[in-house]
Design a protein around this nucleic acid. Sequence first.
DNA 1: AGGACGGCTCAGAAATTCGG
DNA 2: CCGAATTTCTGAGCCGTCCT
Length: 567
Amino acid sequence: HFFGEYVGVGFTASLEDRLDDVARGAAPWRDVLGAFWVPFAGEVRALRGLRTSRVVDVLDATMGVHFFGDDQDALKAKLHVIAATTATDADNTATPFPRLGFDPESLSKSRTCPSCGGGRLGLKLSRAGGFIGCSSYPSCGYARPLSPTTDGTEALEEEVRYPKVLGEDPATGRKVVLLRGPYGAYLQLEAGAQLTHEARAAANDAELLAAAAAHSAETLDIHAINEAGYAALTQGQETDATRPPRVRASSHHPPKETTTKFGLQGANIRAEDVTLELALDLLRYPMVLGLHPEDSGEVTMHAGPFGWYVSHQGFNATLPKKTLRAARNAAVAASRSEADRNGSKREAGASAFAFTEGEKLTLTEEEFMYTGAAGDDGEEDGVKGAERGASRTGKTGKGLSDAWYVGSEKGQMEGYGLSLEARATLLRAQYSPVSLEAAVEVLTKKKLKLAFERERSGNKKQAAKVPSKKRATEEKAAKVARVTKVDKGAKFDKITEAKKVKRKSSAYNLFCSHTRGSLAPGLPSTEQSKLLGALWKALGEEEKSKFETVARVVNDRREAAAAAAAA
DNA sequence: AGGACGGCTCAGAAATTCGG
DNA sequence: CCGAATTTCTGAGCCGTCCT
């Protein structure tokens, strides 16, 4: 519409012909390029005032048939409006190319905004590119990606509309919202209305009651504590062990009203899977797990862009998958036993989650859903497996998109998935906090590992300085043995285990370390190896026997040192 | 299978940047 | 200032080549 001539097939073909003329020497290149450039530059100048919004309008009109299924009549009507206003634009130099006003009624039905019902959908442009948005923006925030839909209805239902209000935190009444930031979806716990003094006092009293109950078996009257004073009540209670927790007046520390955020990307959660319950679970992080037994410093659990980790005194350690899985299973087991105690019906899905990958299990009717993942036989997704007469027993595993399923023994992914409710319960359990003990273990392990590495690199430097290489390796072996005694980490173990039993040095090995230094500096290691191999072969028997003698001595001493260290 | 070597990739975590 | 994304830095682990 703006450069019609230049995108035409004929234009390209004729320009190619003329360029061929230039190549043959039949036409001067200045004339050919000039014939193209002069009018082209003029058109570019003329369109300098063109607004992006106008281009978007025209794209909206012409592409509407693909995005919204606009009918041909609607398209014709719009093009008519474009033609009419283009003429007006040319005369109007003060405000060139004003925004087009399409007649919304001329547009197809699927243009109606599914969110507000009043606005019309259209092509919009953001920093990140094109998208489909509502004409009532900003009062209506509906948006969806630019993708062609045949009937529009199916795609719209799956779409998450931002901001999405998930609900309220029942404890505080603060709003829980799913938002979309520059880097993806994130959860936000809004700064709620300031609590009244009475509400704060009640909350504080409840907190104190809980603390008191945890400390002593007998229930304390919290109001009596406030009136009579802490000191009077604790008279006669001498030791730290019997002293109840410190009591502070409620009005002294009003709760902080800050918004809390949680990014979904790092936790690898899909926005459409987030329920209010899961959101509240996630917004508890960073969470205080407890106090470190050594120094009583807080141990906290966080979600970073790289995954879950625990922190203590500024020292971080990533939580291994094994630890997270253990936390999940513990949480599920706890909810199960609680349900059993209450005599109530077991929470749907709970029984399905107290498993580890590869375990055989039988699903209940509620948990079970046929997903039809394999062998498309025309069966509709979501049909209950029982209705299809399928077995509800199989091995658990993780399929595409990390969705849990129960499949046949051979893992053919017959597709006996978990119901949506069961899936939601599993998701929640997945983000259970780890125990303080587990966190401390992870932290301690990493500290030991770091200490081990520091010592090892320290020895390396020492070995470079001190001429006696043998002494350095002996020290290293001794330290490795020491660390191995206190730690049994997976990868860490591999290192220590490998180093503990030191392989014997061959005469060739000694020759290599002796000669390597005199090779040309900067020679690649593989080339060094080739050269050393050739040199070793070329070495006379007498020379070789010298290295063999040294090797015997070195190995004997190493053996003696290892025996001493073991004793 | 494993030791030696430097270079390389990968992953974890700290440091920095971004946006409201 | 805060939380999240991106960049930067560091160490682990692998590669390939020789011989035992």
